[in-house]
Structure formats: C-alpha cells, structure tokens
C-alpha cells in the first residue's frame, strides 16, 4: 500500500543530512511551513543551504533556524525586511553567505530543476549587477541571461489538504513556491491541515500531483500573525 502519511513531523524529517540544500516554501505570512522548520531545527542538520523567497522574519520559523546557526548559505530574492534582524546580524558579521536572485528567476530556476531543464535564457536582470559574469545571448533582437537550475535535497512546503498518495491542494496565496519546490527536490515533505481519503480531492483541482511528494504530515492550523486565518 502506498502511504506517504507520516505519523509526526519528527518521523517525516528523519535522516536529513548535514550540508543538504533545503527549499522552504512561503511568501510573507502565507505558506510558511512553520512546524516543519521547527522539526528541522529539532532534527539537527547543519551547514545547510536554504532556498526561500526571504531570509526569515522576527525570531520564529526560518529566522529561528538561522539563529540556531544551522544555515551556511541562503538563496533568496528579498532578504531585507523590517523584522529580518536575525539574518541582518549574520550577514553583516559575515557568518552567512547570500545568493540574491530575482524572484521570477528564482521560481524558474527551481522549476527548471524539477522539469529536467539544463539551463535557460531569461531577459530578467540583463545589464544589471545580478547578471555579472553570466553568459548572455542575443535572441531575436533581445538580450538574455543564462541561468542554471537549483536542485534541492529536501523541500519543506505547506499545503492545505492531502491524501495518502501525496496529492496536494493549497489555500489562496499560500500556494506560492510550494508546487515548484515540490518538483525540484529529491525529497518533499508537505504539511497539510487535513488528510482526506483517496478520491476526496477533486482530480481536476489537485495542484501538486502525488509524484512530487514524498511524505505528508498533518499539523493543526495556527495563526502566523494576529488576526489569524479565516476558515
């Protein structure tokens, strides 16, 4: 029987190795797999490369992983936030490496990894500091920059519903990086708020098909900010 439901976050995250590349979903308050990040902190892997849109907020979630000294390098588009003080301190004191990637290039590099693409040309960033040293090519009168895929060892993503095969749906803008990160990593762990029987998800509406998911684990819904979630 194919059953990807893990009994606990700890079970789902067993065996994460040091120096792994870990993709973590989420954008702003939406789609951050807080329980899985806490599980990764408890699991203990270190010297990680983390791929996320941001570089942590406040003192929880990704910021807590950074504060625990587990992250060697972060690949993201927007590290600087009003409350990114944990990252800011590590960066200014040279204790973390930053690879800054335009947001759309970040998403496409992740997608390319999942789709078996060797590299791609994008117009984004041409003529800017972020394209320095990269190959460029003139195609149909327009300048493009060569970008390579980002492969991951582990994706931690937050979905809404899942079934034991690992099919997933998301909720509103919490979808963000989940579907591409799930494709790009050797192992994908998704948290869900509800596990349904096979057939319980409308096949026309499944966003991430089971093939991209290794394990799912149910977590309680919790607010990430005052005001919380509306059901």
């Amino acid at each position: 029987m194919l059953n990807k439901v893990a009994a606990s976050v700890g079970d789902a995250l067993a065996g994460v190795e040091d120096a792994a590349t870990v993709m973590i979903g989420g954008f702003g308050t939406a789609g951050i797999p807080v329980e899985l990040i806490e599980g990764l902190i408890a699991q203990g892997a270190r010297d990680l490369t983390v791929v996320n849109n941001n570089a942590g907020n406040g003192d929880t979630g990704l910021a807590a992983l950074l504060a625990a000294g587990r992250v060697r390098k972060i690949v993201c588009s927007f590290p600087r936030q009003a409350d990114s003080h944990v990252f800011d301190d590590l960066y200014r004191s040279g204790r973390i490496e930053l690879e800054l990637v335009p947001q759309g290039t970040l998403a496409e590099r992740i997608r390319a990894a999942g789709a078996g693409i060797g590299a791609f040309y994008t117009p984004t960033g041409h003529g800017t500091e972020l394209a320095k040293g990269k190959e460029t090519r003139l195609i149909d009168g327009r300048q493009y920059v060569l970008e390579y895929p980002i492969h991951g060892d582990l994706a931690l993503i937050k979905a809404e519903r899942g079934d034991r095969w690992g099919n997933l749906t998301y909720r509103k803008t919490a979808r963000n990086f989940g579907p591409v990160m799930a494709m790009a990593c050797r192992r994908t762990v998704a948290s869900v708020h509800e596990i349904v029987d096979l057939g319980g998800l409308d096949p026309e509406a499944i966003v991430t098909p089971a093939i991209f998911v290794s394990q799912i684990v149910k977590v309680e819904r919790r607010a990430t900010q005052a005001g919380g979630f509306k059901q």
Binding site: S77, P79, P102, T124, L130
Partner: peptide
C-alpha cells in the same frame, strides 16, 4: 553597507 534585496522588480521591469 546595505543588505541587497530585489524581489520581483527586475522581472517586472523588463517583462
């Protein structure tokens, strides 16, 4: 000395 952050600006500007 500033921490760089770009977000989606480069994609939007040329896209």
């Amino acid at each position: 000395n500033a921490i760089p952050a770009v977000g989606g600006a480069m994609d939007l500007a040329v896209g």
